[in-house]
């Protein structure tokens, strides 16, 4: 399940684990939101709402999904403090900031898209995944500073991608 951020909403797609490989194929001829939105940062990880095919109240469920994904629902989600809303105005709303007043640096929750780049999606992904796993371990355990990734991990990943 992918959630793609657009200027005024969120587009939800179903794809396999390689979004960038999958979505453009679907997009041919049809105007789907591009994963390249915001330089590829439009891709969010999110909790998804879905309607069961066997549901006897599909209409009401659809109304609820629209409500939850709309401005009012998103605002409420932000105020609840349980999730980070996906709609940009709701993320920047004072209600969301108030719900997380105990977090000094709110960017930890909402600044991701502005500070992240492409996820490398390649046939060598498993190798990179293994490298990341090895590289992140010591950082997450606090043995090595996160800056060590800049030289160690980045270099190794570059090498794997170059040798392809």
């Amino acid at each position: 399940m992918l959630c793609l951020r657009t200027e005024d909403g969120v587009r939800i797609e179903v794809a396999d684990r390689y979004p960038e490989r999958e979505v453009p194929v679907q997009a041919s001829g049809r105007s789907f939101a591009s994963p390249d939105q915001e330089n590829g940062r439009g891709l969010l990880l999110c909790a998804a709402l879905a309607i069961a095919a066997t549901s006897s109240r599909k209409e009401q469920a659809w109304e609820f999904v629209k409500f939850a994904a709309g401005p009012i629902g998103q605002g409420l989600i932000g105020e609840s403090g349980l999730f980070v809303p996906v709609l940009t105005p709701a993320v920047g709303s004072p209600g969301f900031a108030k719900a997380h007043s105990n977090i000094r640096n709110l960017d930890v929750l909402i600044g991701g898209p502005a500070n992240s780049g492409y996820l490398p999606v390649t046939a060598a992904w498993e190798r990179i995944d293994a490298l990341m796993d090895r590289g992140f371990g010591p950082v997450l355990r606090g043995v090595r500073p996160a800056t060590s990734l800049q030289t160690g991990l980045s270099h190794d990943v570059d090498e794997v991608l170059r040798s392809r």
């Binding site: 060598a124 498993e126 995944d129 293994a130 796993d133 090895r134 371990g137 010591p138 355990r141």
Partner: peptide, 26 residues
């Protein structure tokens, strides 16, 4: 400890290396 023989290379034994090269790295 998972298919990467983690944490880091703590349990990266030959069996895991074999599996990883064959079925993860193809």
């Amino acid at each position: 400890t998972g298919g990467h023989g983690g944490p880091e290379t703590g349990t990266y034994v030959l069996g895991i290396m074999l599996f990883q090269n064959a079925f993860a790295f193809l």
